[in-house]
């Protein structure tokens, strides 16, 4: 229980840092660390396969792609924001300089801690109550069976999503001048 709490708190810190940092590179790294924490949580919930998946995709693959992008368009670590940095405008057509105004964001930790406290009061008793439920108790019903098996029709759904992503990327990005650029996710 305590272990879980610590992991959750660490996760929250990493994610908030990822949102609030100005340097894009550091944000990406915080994101990767946050994903690692999530996979640790999954391991402790005895869902090894989910944990591995999370680790390999979200903690490794994605940050690599993101950091690669940032490096390619040279957006990380730049402090001079005043000159007209046209070459910093990615293919998306708008400026991807980080947000200057951080006053609003300073509230974020406060808000998050408030929600965490509220969650402690309301959600934890709720989830404890859930454990009394018949379906929850009958752990002989493998959760995996419900989610994985019998879902062959989701194959078509997966194909649809992949097609959607492919079309979206092709539409949003203009492969101009032969340079391959990718965006986040």
């Amino acid at each position: 229980m305590t272990y879980h709490l610590i992991l959750f708190a660490v996760l929250l810190i990493f994610i908030m840092a990822s949102v609030m940092l100005q340097n894009l590179l550091y944000s990406a790294i915080m994101l990767a660390l946050g994903s690692v924490t999530v996979s640790l949580i999954m391991f402790t919930f005895s869902a090894p396969w989910a944990g591995v998946f999370e680790l390999s995709v979200c903690a490794a693959l994605l940050p690599v792609l993101v950091i690669g992008t940032i490096k390619l368009i040279d957006a990380g670590g730049r402090q001079d924001l005043d000159e007209g940095n046209e070459d910093n405008c990615g293919s998306l057509g708008f400026n991807i300089q980080p947000v200057e105004n951080r006053i609003k964001f300073r509230i974020l930790p406060l808000v998050v801690s408030l929600i965490a406290v509220l969650g402690w009061i309301f959600f934890i008793p709720f989830f404890e109550a859930l454990s009394k439920y018949p379906y929850m108790n009958s752990l002989n019903r493998d959760l995996g069976k419900i989610i994985w098996a019998g879902r062959s029709q989701d194959l078509i759904a997966q194909i649809t999503i992949l097609t959607a992503i492919a079309m979206a990327m092709k539409s949003i990005l203009h492969f101009s001048g032969g340079k391959n650029k990718e965006s986040k996710e």
Partner: peptide, 22 residues
């Protein structure tokens, strides 16, 4: 669950279509 997956696919498509304005 299936409904959710398809709804997410629709969201991605809508996203791209809104971007069509260039």
């Amino acid at each position: 669950f299936t409904l959710y997956i398809y709804a997410e696919a629709l969201a991605i498509v809508s996203l791209a279509m809104i971007c069509y304005e260039d």
